[in-house]
Amino acid sequence: MTATRRGRPPAGPERRNALVQAAYRCLAEGGFERLRMRDVAAGVGIDHSSIHHHFPTKQDLVVAVVDYTTRQFWSTTPPDGGPVERLRHHLATLRQKIVDEPELHIVLRELDLRARRDPELLEIIAGREEGWRSSLRTLLTGAAAAGALAPGVDPATGAELVIATVKGASLASSRAGDVIELLDQLLIRA
């Protein structure tokens, strides 16, 4: 990122990205209680009134953080290989992200909790998660067709189980590996 002589990012996409990063850090460190537009602006070194040029409302900033956090998962499923290998790789990558990037999951859980009280945010998050849900259903359907899915596991229900398990495991990162490994064993025939 190129900085101006005052040490703050230049106006435009770089500054917008820096504001999203600052909001992300606020959420990771103190949850929604510490997410204040003034603090986000100060974290980037700009006057608090300038943040509104990039994000007219706090909700707009929150949506940008949702987009940033969900983008971190776009490449967790490899494009090549069979459905079982791809699913196992996806689960292993998620397990590693929980361990290596706990702040990412703290922010995601904060957003999930906030969405329970904010219908607009709930709809936005559901829309972003639909891609994940669809990808999981496709992988599980492929595993079922290959005879590798555990008996009685419906791909749509299995996708919901994966999502719920990953979200829960991220709350107890010290046990995430064990929990996701168990999920692998429950879904896929050895």
Rank of each mutant, 00 (worst) to 15 (best):
P119H: 12
H90Q: 11
D39Q: 14
K97S: 15
H105R: 07
Q59L: 13
L111Y: 11
V107A: 14
S75C: 06
L87N: 09
H89C: 11
V99G: 12
R15Y: 03
H53P: 03
P10A: 01
L104P: 02
L108I: 05
D67Q: 02
T76N: 15
V20Y: 00
G31S: 09
H90E: 12
R71Q: 11
R88T: 12
R34I: 02
V99F: 08
H53T: 08
D118R: 00
A18P: 06
D60R: 09
Q59E: 15
W74T: 03
P10V: 08
P10W: 02
P102M: 03
V40E: 03
D112C: 10
D60P: 00
F55M: 03
D60I: 00
V44C: 09
R109L: 10
I98C: 06
P119L: 11
H90S: 14
H52R: 02
P9Q: 02
Y68E: 14
E33I: 12
D47K: 01
L87H: 09
K58Q: 14
V99R: 15
T93L: 10
G30A: 04
H90W: 07
P13Y: 04
L91D: 10
G81K: 07
L113P: 05
D112V: 07
D39R: 14
D80C: 06
Y24W: 13
E120N: 03
V40I: 05
R15T: 01
P79A: 14
G12L: 00
A23N: 07
T77K: 12
E110G: 14
V107K: 13
L87R: 04
P83L: 02
F73G: 09
P10D: 01
G81W: 08
I106D: 11
L35T: 05
L35N: 05
I98W: 02
Y24C: 03
A18E: 00
R116N: 12
E29K: 11
I106S: 14
L104R: 11
R25Q: 14
G31D: 10
T57F: 04
R117C: 13
R36W: 03
R95E: 15
S49W: 00
D100E: 15
D118H: 01
R36G: 08
R34N: 15
P13V: 07
L91K: 07
A64V: 02
G82W: 00
G43M: 05
P79E: 15
P78A: 11
E29Y: 05
V63A: 09
A92C: 07
G43Q: 07
P102V: 04
D118A: 10
D39K: 10
V66Y: 06
V65W: 06
V66E: 08
P13G: 06
R16L: 01
R86H: 11
F55V: 07
K97E: 13
V44T: 11
V44Y: 05
F73S: 14
R38A: 10
R86Y: 04
R71T: 03
P119A: 12
E85D: 15
Q59C: 00
L91W: 00
F32T: 09
G43R: 00
L94C: 01
R88L: 14
R38K: 04
G30P: 07
A11Q: 14
Y68L: 13
T69G: 01
H53K: 00
A28E: 13
A18T: 04
G30C: 08
Q72G: 08
H53W: 07
A41L: 06
G43I: 07
K97I: 05
M37E: 13
T70M: 15
R71W: 04
